[in-house]
Amino acid sequence: MVQDQNGFYGQIVPRTDFAALLADDSFTPLPDDWVVGAADIVSSTAEIAAGRYKTVNMIGAAVIAAVANGLGGEAFPFVFEGDGALFAVPSRAEETVRAQLAALRRWADAEFGITLRAALIPIGDIRAAGLDLQVARFAPSGGADYAMFSGGGLAWAEARMKAGEYSVPQAAEGVAPDLTGLSCRWDNLKSRNGLILSLVVRPVTGADPAGFRAVAAQVVDLASGLSRGGHPVPPQGPAPHWAPGTLDFEARARRDGRPLWRHRLRLLLSHLAISGLMRTGARVGRFDPARYRAAISLNADFRKFDDGLKMTLDCDPATRDRIEAVLSIGAEAGLIRYGMVEQEEALITCFVPSALRDDHVHFVDGAAGGYASAARRLDSKLSDRT
């Protein structure tokens, strides 16, 4: 994405040490005149139970793609939530973003029969409620970085959206968002260490923030002991296998009211050509398939802070047990709430403005409910061992 170095977000220096984000000085307050955007799928639990979690993930990532395209590629802070997304933009971009969210709501309903809710909340209202919203940037590679949030404001904004406040209404029939660059035809990623662990940890309201940071630091330290820190994507990138159903999703994302079969055919032909390049490693012009696949691994967003800690880890059972023990103690002490979900596979969803650059971003989640299911277990001390 384009780095607006003269703007607020462009001036924040990305950090490369994830654990260092637990330090008090890692985050910077967002300007008062910015707005927070929130969007998620209503009844995502039922969609997951129906086996549509890939679609749920793609719609969640579509929020980020639509806002990024609406802003012309200008960098802005966002976080992928599995069944939705949260982000912040300057007030000058509010109407542009409002239009994209309205179009997304119409598109999700018309194409998939899925209800997407969305809201835009002034940061001034968050601070008036006694909370804050601070941001940092974490760079997993030299090509991409992701926003991290703290202060409690993001969780408050999400709760207000779910309560029906600050709602962005659907656009008129036929209005479509710009989802250029949204894709991911990669098949699910199988665990190499035993299981894929999706984890959500939140501080208890009113508890000592230092207590949450101490618990989170222990979890991050345990994860660092896993092979490659629990990274679910192999270093050479995902295998060149394509997930069924993704071509249909992309066709629905880009048809612009034209016949669906035409877009399916065009994408199928493109898929066959790209699949051949990925399997053979043959370079075409400036496109290097091996470099692209390796960048997917380098850029993958499998851990984050957003008023809490979220991780999707390729984990062994022993480390899982140690992580759960730490979390259980923290919950008993009244410091944190947590939810854990175990799966056999992870999935990956991509936003690729250009395959010729290294700044494409890739969102990793558990393939059987992931973050969305883990978040629904926040008030339970039981993990889901299935």
Rank of each mutant, 00 (worst) to 15 (best):
Leu131Gly: 01
Met58Lys: 12
Gly153Ile: 12
Pro140His: 05
Leu222Asp: 03
Ile274Gly: 11
Leu182Thr: 03
His263Gly: 11
Ala375Thr: 08
Ala163Phe: 04
Pro90Tyr: 05
Leu179Cys: 06
Gln236Gly: 14
Thr312Ile: 12
Ala163Pro: 07
Glu173Val: 14
Gln11Gly: 10
Ala144Trp: 05
Ala66Met: 02
Pro29Lys: 06
Asn193Glu: 12
Gly37Val: 04
Ala61Ser: 06
Leu30Tyr: 05
Ala110Thr: 09
Ser198Gly: 08
Leu247Ala: 11
Asp145Lys: 08
Arg291Phe: 08
Leu131Ala: 11
Gly51Leu: 02
Pro235Tyr: 03
Ser275Phe: 15
Leu269Thr: 12
Gly257Asn: 06
Asp83Asn: 09
Asp358Ser: 12
Leu226His: 00
Pro238Met: 07
Val220Pro: 06
Ile126Met: 00
Glu250Phe: 11
Ala295Phe: 08
Trp34Gln: 03
Thr280Lys: 09
Thr205Gln: 15
Ala66Asp: 05
Tyr338Leu: 05
Asn188Ala: 14
Cys315Arg: 05
Tyr146Ser: 09
Asp248Trp: 13
Pro169Met: 05
Phe363Cys: 08
Glu81Asp: 15
Ala110Trp: 04
Ser224Leu: 10
Thr115Trp: 11
Ala375Met: 07
Thr205Ser: 15
Glu324Gln: 15
Ala157Cys: 10
Asp288Cys: 02
Gly285Asn: 01
Gly73Leu: 09
Pro232Glu: 06
Ala50Asp: 10
Gly276Glu: 04
Thr312Val: 15
Gly211Tyr: 08
Glu324Val: 15
Pro203Cys: 09
Val35Thr: 09
Val361Tyr: 08
Leu101Glu: 01
Val2Asp: 15
Asp24Phe: 01
Asp25Gln: 05
Gln218Leu: 00
Ser91Glu: 14
Gln343Thr: 15
Gly369Lys: 07
Ala110Asp: 11
Val135Pro: 03
Phe149Val: 07
Ser380Trp: 13
Pro140Phe: 07
Arg137Thr: 00
Ala355Leu: 11
Leu182Glu: 03
Pro14Gln: 02
Val220Ala: 01
Pro240Tyr: 01
His360Pro: 00
Pro240Cys: 03
Ser328Lys: 13
Arg303Trp: 10
Ala243Gln: 13
Arg213Met: 00
Gly281Asp: 02
Leu327Gln: 02
Val220Phe: 01
Ala253Phe: 05
Ala144His: 09
Trp156Arg: 11
Ala38Trp: 06
Ala93Glu: 07
Asp365Gln: 01
Asp4Val: 14
Ala93Pro: 00
Arg202Cys: 01
Met148Trp: 09
Asp40Tyr: 06
Val352Leu: 10
Arg98Val: 02
Lys162Ser: 04
Cys315Ile: 07
Leu182Pro: 02
Thr349Lys: 04
Ser26Thr: 02
Leu179Ala: 00
Tyr53Ala: 03
Ala128Leu: 13
Leu131Gln: 12
Leu189Phe: 04
Leu86His: 12
Lys190Ile: 11
Val168Pro: 00
Trp107Gln: 12
Ala102Phe: 01
Gly130Phe: 06
Val89Pro: 06
Val219Asn: 00
Gly225Pro: 09
Asp256Arg: 14
Pro31Asp: 04
Glu95Arg: 11
Thr28Gly: 03
Met278Thr: 11
Ala333Gln: 14
Asp256Glu: 13
Gly308Thr: 01
Leu154Arg: 10
Gln3Met: 15
Ala331Cys: 08
Ala38Cys: 12
Leu71Lys: 08
Gly130Lys: 02
Arg127His: 01
Ala144Arg: 11
Val175Lys: 08
Ser297Arg: 04
Val215Phe: 04
Ser183Phe: 14
Ile329Trp: 09
Asp24Gln: 09
Pro122Asp: 01
Val200Gln: 12
Gly152Glu: 08
Arg160Lys: 12
